[in-house]
Amino acid sequence: MDSTPILYNEFPLFLKRYFPYKVQKISLNAGFTCPNRDGFKGYGGCTYCNNQTFNPEYCRTEKSVTQQLEEGKVFFSHKYPEMKYLAYFQAYTNTYGELEALKRKYEEALTVPDVVGLVIGTRPDCMPDALLHYLEEMNKRTFLLVEYGIESTNDATLRRINRGHTYQDTVDAVERTAACGILTGGHVILGLPGETHDELVTQASVLSRLPLTTLKMHQLQLIRGTRMAHEYEQHPEDFQLFDVEEYIDLVVDYIEHLRPDLVLERFVSQSPKELLIAPDWGLKNYEFNHRVQKRMRQLGAYQGKKYEM
Rank of each mutant, 00 (worst) to 15 (best):
I150L: 12
P56S: 09
G44R: 02
C46I: 13
E151Y: 09
R160E: 12
T66N: 09
R141F: 01
K84W: 02
Q52L: 15
Y85A: 05
L99I: 13
V115D: 07
F76A: 06
R163W: 07
T142Q: 04
H165D: 13
T66S: 06
T122I: 07
C49P: 01
S64I: 11
C46F: 12
A87F: 04
C126T: 14
Y48L: 06
K41M: 04
E137W: 13
G164Q: 05
C126V: 10
C126M: 11
F54M: 12
A130Y: 08
L158T: 03
N50I: 03
V65G: 05
A156C: 00
V119Q: 01
Y106C: 08
S64C: 12
L135F: 12
Y58N: 07
Y96A: 09
Y148F: 13
P124H: 12
F75G: 00
Y58T: 08
I150N: 06
L131G: 06
L86F: 04
Q90P: 00
G72C: 04
L132A: 13
E107M: 12
G149T: 04
F54I: 09
Y167G: 08
L132S: 07
G149V: 08
Q90M: 06
M127E: 09
Y96S: 05
M138A: 11
T61H: 05
L158S: 04
G117T: 02
L110N: 00
G72K: 02
L102D: 00
S152H: 05
T142I: 03
A130K: 13
T111I: 01
G42M: 12
K84P: 09
K105T: 10
D155F: 14
G45I: 01
F54R: 09
F89T: 04
E108A: 08
E82G: 07
T111L: 10
K73R: 09
E98G: 08
Q68N: 11
K84M: 04
S77Y: 03
T157W: 02
N51T: 15
I120N: 11
F75T: 10
G44W: 07
T95D: 00
A87P: 04
E107I: 06
E108D: 05
N139P: 12
L110E: 04
C126K: 00
S77N: 13
C59S: 12
L110M: 03
G72Y: 03
Q52A: 14
E57K: 15
R60N: 10
T47P: 09
Y92M: 11
P113F: 05
Y85H: 02
M127S: 05
M83T: 13
G164F: 00
S152Y: 01
I120C: 09
L144Q: 07
R141H: 13
K84Y: 11
T66M: 14
C49E: 07
